[in-house]
């Protein structure tokens, strides 16, 4: 999902930790206790979570770009106000998540610098362009819909600060999905051109959205430990199937067709989708998606152009602190 790079192989660096302490930790996890920042935790648990939460945070921040693209061109003041509020929420989500990641011992500055240097990943989905207004509807409906599917189980994740951040995020995410669906509904009830625009956006976003859930279970290499540690409670394929089953009737209501001619409903009512093109997914994660370079360039530009603000705020705080010391000495 927002942390797809976790599915990539990485060296197993679990050091020699005291077996008894590690067993005690696992007992706490098995008893559904929450792990808090100052509690003992295996180094690999800390590292996995730092990566997962920071990637999730980066995704929220980079996720502001495709939607921010349409704020100035929203078709009405109502749509503009809603989109502005949504993009502001994404920023807030990024900040809650950075704060949760920092409790594991890495500063936000280091995390942000890793993203700007291209060393940390964010979700593949934000490397696709938002070409028309219908894309904003589709992003809210499908991208946020997929995110909710992934984030609801994370509210029960074993790491306390992450779980608490997810509860806040999920409460706000519901508005995002509904505003997206409303945009789609309005377009689908509009002129033929507007409905065609909605269908075109669905055609372009459908497969990338399914890829958001990450590689199929058979090839995902991190699920085992994440499941054991109760960071992950459902597999990629389980969440993907839940999402597809929830989305198909919504598309039918809009009168749009899912761009998967091979899709069939099985005897249990599940909508079975066709094979996903995982080479595209790998290409996007490797930095070769349609917008990877643009997204990083935009983040770096914003960061560089904000440097004077950070410096001025720090200088002002230092001056005030100096003055307080001087006054106290008088």
């Amino acid at each position: 999902m927002y942390t797809q790079a976790l599915n990539m192989a990485e060296a197993d660096d679990r050091g020699l930790e005291d077996a008894a302490t590690a067993a005690q930790f696992q007992t706490r996890i098995d008893a559904d206790e929450r792990i808090e920042p100052n509690d003992w935790m295996p180094a690999a648990y800390r590292k996995t979570l730092t990566r997962q939460i920071s990637q999730h945070a980066h995704s929220e921040i980079v996720g502001m770009l495709p939607e921010g693209n349409w704020i100035t061109r929203a078709p009405s003041l109502r749509r503009k106000a809603a989109l502005l509020a949504k993009v502001q929420d994404e920023c807030g989500h990024g900040l809650y998540l950075y704060a949760a990641a920092e409790t594991l011992g890495t500063s936000r500055e280091e995390l942000v610098d890793a993203m700007l240097a291209g060393k940390a990943k964010y979700s593949s989905i934000f490397n696709y362009p938002t070409l028309t207004w219908a894309d904003i509807g589709t992003v809210g409906w499908l991208v946020d819909g997929a995110a909710i599917m992934n984030q609801i189980p994370l509210c029960r994740c074993s790491y306390g600060p992450y779980a608490r951040a997810m509860i806040r995020v999920c409460k706000e995410e519901s508005f995002h999905q509904r505003q997206g669906y409303e945009i789609m509904l309005t377009l689908c009830r509009g002129s033929d051109e507007q409905k065609a625009m909605a269908q075109d956006a669905l055609n372009r976003w459908w497969w990338p959205v399914l890829m958001m859930f990450g590689p199929p279970d058979a090839t995902s290499q991190h699920s085992d430990t994440s499941t054991k540690w109760k960071i992950k409670r459902f597999s990629n394929d389980e969440l993907r199937q839940k999402f597809v089953d929830a989305t198909v009737p919504q598309a039918q209501y809009l009168g749009l067709s899912i761009p998967d001619p091979g899709m069939i409903q099985d005897a249990d009512g599940h909508w079975r989708y066709s094979e996903i093109d995982w080479t595209e997914f790998k290409q996007v994660l490797a930095g070769n998606g349609p917008c990877n370079r643009d997204r990083l360039a935009a983040r770096r530009k914003a960061h560089d152009e904000g440097a004077w603000v950070r410096e001025a705020a720090a200088a002002y705080a230092a001056k005030r602190a100096q003055r307080r010391i001087a006054q106290a000495a008088e």
Partner: peptide, 23 residues
């Protein structure tokens, strides 16, 4: 409710308003 970064108390209050009380 959580934490945030700010260079001084005034900015911390403003940021807290924006980050934690939007609704």
């Amino acid at each position: 409710v959580g934490s945030l970064h700010a260079s001084d108390a005034t900015m911390a209050l403003q940021a807290a308003r924006d980050i934690y009380t939007r609704r």
